[in-house]
Design a protein around this nucleic acid. Structure first.
Lengths: 341, 341
DNA sequence: CTGAAAGCGCTTACAG
DNA sequence: CTGAAAGCGCTTACAG
C-alpha cells in the first residue's frame, strides 16, 4: 500500500487532560489510576473520581504516547518465515492465548521460508516491541538482529546458546517413528526435506539419518529431494525423485511436514504407487487433515499451541530476569495411521 | 503474559538529534529527508549530508514518536474471528503482499468465531492504526466499533452500506455447484452450516436453499446441523444428523467450508456411507488438502489471497478519498472432484 | 532553503 | 497523597 497523506480527518480523542479536568485532579493522578499504580500514592476518593470520569468519557490511554514515554510498547512481534503451513495457525493461537489482552501480536511474515531483511527488522525494532518471537530463524538473520527487545526463538534446535529457545523433543518422536518403521520390516528409508533451510528441518533429517543407521536400516541420501511446504510442490518433487528412490529399494519415505506428505500421497496415487504396500509415507505436525487424507497419515505430532504458549512464557521470564531460561522440550508423539500400516 | 516492570535495560537508540549533529543540520531537516519530503525544501547538499549520517549511525525513525506527532501509526489491524481455518492464511498472505513493507500488520484474533469485545477494540484503536480490516464481522461488533481509522470489511455480504466491503461472488459459485448437483440427478440436498454466525455463512445457506428450489430440488432444512470450522467438530455433527438426512432422502450434502467437509468424509467412511455413491459431499475454499483427501473434494474455490489484496486496495482508496468505494466481487469457481462424481 | 519552537499525549521523578 | 514540570523523539507550521 503506497503511503498517502490521509485525506480523512480523524475524530478528536479523549485525553488524560480531559479526564483530569472532569475528575478535578491532575493528569499525573489520572495516569497512576489507569495504570494501577495507586498503591500508597492516590487517595481512595481520587481513585473513584478518576474511574468515574474515565467511564463517563470513555477514555483509553493512547498507546502511542504511552509507549513513547515509557520507552517500550505493548506490542509483541512474531517473525515467521511462512504462513502457508497451517501448523503456524496453532502456534499463533497458543501465543495469543498466553499473551492475553494486555499485549498485541504483530505478525511479520516474509513468505517462502525467507527471514526478514535487515531493513525489515529495523522497522520492527522501531515499534519498540515488548518482545520478539522468531520461528525457525536462520544464521544471517540472528547475526543481523539488533538488540532492542527480549528475544525468544521457537523451534530452533541448536540455537540455545544464542538466545532463549523453545523446542520440540524431536529425538523422542523420531525414535518412535523409526522403531515403528523397523518393526514393519523397512530396511531402506528415503527423506523428503523442506526447502526452507532452518535448524528444525536440518535436525529432523539428521535424526532420521543417524536413527536409521542405529537400527540397521539404510538411509538413502538424496539431498536434492526437497520442496517448499506445500502439497503441490511436494508432489512435483516426489514425481522427480521417486524413480531413483524405487531404484534404491526405498520402501518408506519420511517427509519433513504433513503438507509434504499430502503431496506425496497424491503423486503416489497418480503414479499407481500403493501406500503403504509399495511405499510407507510419514509426516510431521499432525494437521487436522492428516486423519482424513487417504490413506490416513502416520505422523509425528508437534504441539504447536504449546510451542506458542511456551514461547510467551519464556519471554515473560526474560523480562523478569535477564538470566537465560531453559525451557523444557515439548513432547513430540508418534501417531500411527494407515499410511504405514 | 502478566505485565511486569522490565528488568532488562534497553540499549540507547540513535535519535534524529544525533543525526542532525553529525550532518550539521537541524532535526527538522533530518525529518524531511528521512520522510522524503525534501522537494523544494532541502538543498541537495543537505540531503546528502543527512543520508550519509543516517547510514553511518544506522538511524531509524522511531515509530512511536513519529506516530504520536503525526496522529496515526503505520499499523494496519486485521480482526479475524479465528485462525483454525487454513483459509485465513491465504487472506493474510494477500494482505501482507499488498501492504508492502511500509505498513505493519497487527493481528487480532479472538477464536471460536467471536468478535473482539468493546474493550479489545478500544485497545486496538489506541494504537492509532492506519486502517482496520475486519473479516466476517457480526452486528454487535460493527455497532460498537468506534470511528478511529479507515475501515474495510472482508467477506461480509450485505454490509456494503455500513462500510467499504470486499466480497466473493458467492452466487456465481453456488449456482454452478447446484447446476452440477442437479445434473448428477440429486433431488434432495442437505446443508452443514458453520456455527459462527456471520453474514457470509448466512448467505451461503440462503443461496443454496433458494437455488435448490429454483432448480426443482428440495432443500432439507436442518438449522441445528452446524459446527465450528474444524473437521472433528464437523464429523461429530454429521454423525448426529446423518440419520435424519438419510431418512429425508438426502443424497447431497453441501458443507459451509472444506474443513467441515473433511469431517464429513471421515465420519461417512467410519459409518460405511459411500461417497459419492450414497452421498455427494461439497465444500467451500479449495484448501490444498482438498485435492488429496479421499475422495477428493468438490468445492467452490474462494480466492483468499485476492480477498486480502482487494481489502488493502480498498483501504488505500479510502485514505485517498472518503467517498465509499465499491469493490468488484471476487470470482468463486466450482471445482469438481471425486466427492460428487 | 533553514532552524527554533510548539505540540503530539503520555509517564515519572521531584518537591511539596 | 498531590501536582507542576520535564522529557520521551518525532513532525510541522512558522518566521526568516
Amino acid at each position: 500500500m503506497p503511503r498517502t497523506s490521509a485525506a480523512v480527518p480523524r475524530p478528536r480523542r479523549i485525553t488524560a487532560a480531559q479526564v483530569a479536568e472532569l475528575a478535578g485532579t491532575s493528569v499525573a493522578t489520572v495516569s497512576l489510576v489507569v495504570n494501577d499504580k495507586t498503591a500508597g500514592r492516590v487517595s481512595t476518593a481520587n481513585i473513584e473520581r478518576v474511574r468515574a470520569a474515565v467511564d463517563e468519557l470513555g477514555y483509553v490511554v493512547d498507546h502511542t504516547a504511552s509507549s513513547l514515554a515509557r520507552g517500550t510498547s505493548n506490542i509483541v512481534i512474531l517473525i515467521a518465515p511462512d504462513l502457508s503451513n497451517p501448523f503456524y495457525g496453532r502456534v499463533i493461537s497458543g501465543i495469543k492465548d498466553e499473551l492475553g489482552s494486555e499485549f498485541q501480536l504483530l505478525l511479520s511474515i516474509t513468505g517462502e521460508g525467507r527471514n526478514p531483511s535487515a531493513a525489515d527488522v529495523h522497522r520492527l525494532i522501531a515499534l519498540r516491541p515488548a518482545g520478539i518471537l522468531v520461528e525457525a530463524p536462520d544464521d544471517a538473520f540472528l547475526r543481523d538482529l539488533p538488540a532492542g527487545a527480549p528475544l525468544v526463538l521457537l523451534d530452533a534446535p541448536g540455537r540455545e546458546t544464542q538466545a532463549v529457545t523453545v523446542n520440540f523433543d524431536l529425538a523422542h518422536g523420531i525414535n518412535a517413528l523409526l522403531d515403528h518403521l523397523a518393526e514393519r520390516g523397512h530396511t531402506r528409508i528415503g527423506y523428503l526435506d523442506s526447502r526452507t533451510r532452518t535448524e528444525t528441518f536440518e535436525l529432523r533429517r539428521i535424526l532420521v539419518e543417524t536413527g536409521a543407521a542405529a537400527r540397521g536400516m539404510e538411509y538413502v541420501s538424496r539431498p536434492e529431494a526437497a520442496s517448499l511446504i506445500d502439497p503441490d510442490a511436494a508432489a512435483e518433487a516426489f514425481l522427480e525423485h521417486w524413480p531413483a528412490w524405487r531404484e534404491s529399494g526405498v520402501t518408506a519415505l519420511v517427509c519433513a511436514t504433513d503438507s509434504h506428505a499430502y503431496g506425496v500421497l497424491k503423486a503416489a496415487r497418480d503414479l499407481g504407487v500403493r501406500v503403504p504396500e509399495d511405499l510407507a509415507v510419514t509426516g510431521f505436525d499432525n494437521l487436522p487433515a492428516s486423519a482424513i487424507v487417504s490413506p490416513a497419515l502416520t505422523t509425528v505430532e508437534l504441539p504447536g499451541e504449546a510451542l506458542g504458549r511456551g514461547a510467551v512464557r519464556a519471554l515473560q521470564a526474560q523480562r523478569l530476569s535477564p538470566e537465560p531460561v531453559t525451557a523444557p522440550l515439548l513432547g513430540a508423539t508418534l501417531i500411527v495411521r494407515g499410511s504405514t500400516a
